[in-house]
Design a protein around this nucleic acid. Structure first.
Lengths: 206, 206
DNA sequence: CCGCTAACTGAATATTGTTAAGTTTCTTGC
DNA sequence: GCAAGAAACTTAACAATATTCAGTTAGCGG
């Protein structure tokens, strides 16, 4: 009873990541047992150690795959809305929030990972999170070309913008949003507030 | 070998929380073994079950104690700087960031707790986090009395402000801050950017 | 057809949260 | 004072789960 029919090695690790993401969608913490992942993939737990050094390595792969998904979703948007920077910023941010609410546990794994998962990650250069920030920087720069946020350092402002959105998302997911609005709305309100501020920085057009 | 000398029940659960906070300071995840807490307190692991229903309940107590500490630190500041709202906002935010960097694991437990710890927490009314937000609302209102942020909804703006600071802190702690500055500086820059924006909303005094 | 390697399996081990049963100390009614 | 009962802890047992180990089988080069 070893070596089933014939299984592509790449296939099994790719499927392990996919199934883990799926299983994360069904629970609210990321302590998914390795045995559950193995069963979903169709093997036993120790078999996974042939593809990942340990559980943290598997979760790190999931973490990275999450950033790739998020990046690709946002990239698709930017192609559609290249012409209107402010609309792209709004819709891109909404897509970001939507992603977080659609995959709350995955989002938590991506941004508040247990340290074993995030460990030894290069300060941020080779990290998938960097490319997400890059998108924000591009969006801010595009807004500046239309006259918004004149004279501001785009990197600095993009990081502040991203921090606000990310903070609102995590607070809302944690149910720490104020008022009686639904949690999702609380995050949307933050976006609207930020966009109002940016819009107010436009040069007068009177 | 049971029932040592005489131990106040309140004393042991208070010390369990304190020792857990201390132990959290020595590690970067919150999987501190119950046995370690028990040894620090001076009892065995099962003894803790007389004071907390389970480990999650202990961590929830730690979570709440963290908010109380944060709240008290900020409250002390507000008494000293009541006269200058913008300075209070700046210093209070710096104290907030300082707290997060001084107690990174505790901060993560407070704001990204495993769901078992945060569970059944009233939407937010009876939560200690609400009082922290209250401080932000008061600070924003005080700023408005001095002419800043005219006409804005203070609750909405306070939440956005808090979200930005919280987001910057978590991103910085996760080493996802951009550029080559130290992580702490990255969070400070966000504060400065936010304060610049608020200052720019003041009515002209020319 | 033979050995060799890769890749997986079942069983074993270690850690850790939790429960069970027993024991000692304190308290309280008499 | 003292016996009965409750309180609060102990040690031992249990359960879940990550990880390791030794064995076994499938495919492949000769």
């Amino acid at each position: 009873m070893a070596r089933p029919k014939k299984e592509d090695a790449l296939d099994i690790s790719r499927r392990a990541v996919e199934e883990t993401i799926r299983l994360l969608g069904e629970r609210d913490d990321f302590d998914v047992p390795l045995a559950a992942v193995a069963e979903a993939v169709g093997c036993t737990a120790p078999a996974l150690y042939g593809h990942f050094r340990n559980k943290d390595a598997l979760l790190r792969a999931v973490h990275d795959a999450g950033f790739r998904r998020l990046y690709e979703e946002k990239l698709a948007l930017s192609k559609r809305l290249r012409s209107d920077p402010l609309a792209y910023l709004r819709e891109g941010t909404r897509a970001y929030v939507q992603f977080a609410f659609n995959n709350p546990t995955l989002y938590r794994l991506m941004f508040s990972p247990p340290p074993g998962v995030a460990a030894d990650q290069d300060p941020l250069s080779s990290d998938a999170g960097a490319s997400v920030l890059e998108l924000a920087v591009k969006a801010i720069k595009a807004c500046q070309k239309r006259g918004f946020l004149p004279g501001m350092d785009p990197n600095r402002y993009a990081f502040t913008y991203w921090a606000a959105v990310h903070g609102a998302v995590t607070l809302a997911l944690q149910n720490r949003a104020p008022g009686d609005e639904a949690r999702f709305d609380a995050a949307i309100v933050v976006i609207d507030t930020l966009l109002e501020i940016i819009a107010a920085t436009a040069p007068d057009r009177r």
